[in-house]
Computed example of a mutant assay.
Amino acid sequence: MKEVNNTAVAEFILSGLTANPNLQVPLFLIFLGVYLITVVGNMGMIILILFSSQLHTPMYYLLSSLSFIDCCQSTVITPKMLVNFVTEKNVIPYSECIAQFYFFCGFAVAECHMLAAMAYDRYVAISKPLLYNVTMSYQVCLWMVAWVYGMGLVSATAHTVFLLRVLFCKSNLIRHYFCDLFPLLELSCSSTFINEVLAWSLGSFNILIPAVTILSSYIFIIVSILHIHSTGGRRKAFSTCSSHILAVALFYGSTAFMYLHPSSVSSGGQGKLSSVFYTIVVPMLNPMIYSLRNKDVKVAFKKLLKKMFPLNKD
């Protein structure tokens, strides 16, 4: 007989970050603050770049796309987690769980490739400054952004389609604070071989290929910087890249630990801590990383404030 419904459960229960009731309210307040900072920071960065003509360059065009991805990724995960902190039973319907995984996967993959695109942009700016406007033209940036979102869409769709074929009947308790792939596969009572192969193949591609692109870009950048004779020029070049290097280290470190070592999910605390970093903490830190050490952003922010709140001179 052909199965009409591939799942035996109508809803899942999320175990959350902790089972300690005394920590629920403090964690709710902490992550609420983190989420508000994330939304304000990333939306503020997008608005600043949009309304500041001096920031209408490929570097900031890509940065605004990164801010959009960070804001969306955090929104997919954090609001549901906040609700779970103040409810007795952390229930999520099957359809909502699958939708959460789909959007999370899409934005996470998109961030991997966006960081690679930004690394390439920095390579062209430092190693080939005379050809920058030609190499990083508007059309090229558009194609790069299309590739970023395209990879996110393809990866999320592939994972979700094969996840829908999995039969869940062992348990409905997800040992995580959101619907991620490996915690969901742990609940399967049907074969997950294809899902695991897909996870390893797409995971390796979406993590290793951008990582190799970033690494090779920075090797060429370092070589170019070493050929700069002035100390001031070297310092400026390094400061331009330092923010991106920090963002890459935080995101790729936690992501690689999670998805290239999936047994960490089973270990509980380590997997959740790693996930908190790239789903919640990194999206909050990225606007700070790219703004606090960036003179152009600071100047643009001051100019925008003056336009919005002009001082009346009597």
Score class of each variant (00 low, 15 high):
M1T: 08
K2L: 14
V4P: 02
V4A: 13
T7H: 14
T7S: 14
A8S: 15
V9T: 07
V9M: 07
E11I: 00
S15H: 03
N20C: 11
P21C: 05
P21D: 02
N22Q: 11
Q24N: 09
Q24T: 01
Q24A: 15
P26E: 05
L27I: 02
F31P: 02
F31V: 01
L32I: 00
V34K: 02
Y35N: 06
Y35L: 06
G41N: 06
M45R: 07
I46V: 08
I46M: 14
I47Q: 10
I47W: 13
L50Y: 12
Q54W: 05
M59V: 15
Y60W: 08
Y60S: 03
L62E: 07
L66P: 00
I69G: 02
C72K: 07
Q73P: 00
Q73A: 10
S74Q: 05
P79N: 03
V83G: 02
K89F: 09
P93T: 05
S95H: 11
S95A: 14
A99W: 14
Y102N: 10
F103G: 03
F104D: 06
C105R: 13
C105Y: 12
A108Y: 13
A110I: 05
A110N: 01
E111M: 12
L115F: 07
A117N: 02
R122G: 04
K128W: 09
P129M: 09
L131C: 09
Y132V: 08
Y132C: 07
N133T: 13
Y138F: 10
G150M: 05
M151W: 11
V154R: 01
V154L: 15
A156M: 10
T157H: 10
A158L: 15
A158C: 11
F162Y: 14
F162G: 01
C169L: 10
H176F: 15
F178K: 00
D180G: 13
D180L: 03
P183H: 04
L185M: 12
L187Y: 05
S188F: 01
S188Y: 05
C189V: 03
S190E: 05
A199E: 11
W200G: 12
S204R: 06
L208V: 12
P210W: 02
P210E: 03
A211Y: 14
V212D: 03
T213G: 03
I214S: 01
S216G: 04
S216P: 04
I219N: 01
I219D: 00
I221D: 00
L226F: 08
L226C: 14
H227E: 14
I228A: 00
G232N: 11
R234M: 12
R235E: 13
C241F: 04
S242I: 14
S243R: 09
L246N: 01
L250I: 13
F251R: 04
Y252W: 07
Y252D: 01
S254T: 08
A256L: 06
M258I: 11
S264D: 09
V265N: 11
V265E: 07
G268W: 05
Q270D: 11
K272N: 13
F277M: 13
Y278L: 10
I280Q: 14
V282G: 00
N286S: 04
N286H: 06
N286W: 07
P287M: 03
P287T: 00
P287R: 04
M288N: 04
I289K: 02
R293V: 13
N294Y: 00
K295R: 12
D296S: 14
V297Y: 03
K298D: 11
K303V: 05
K307I: 08
L311D: 05
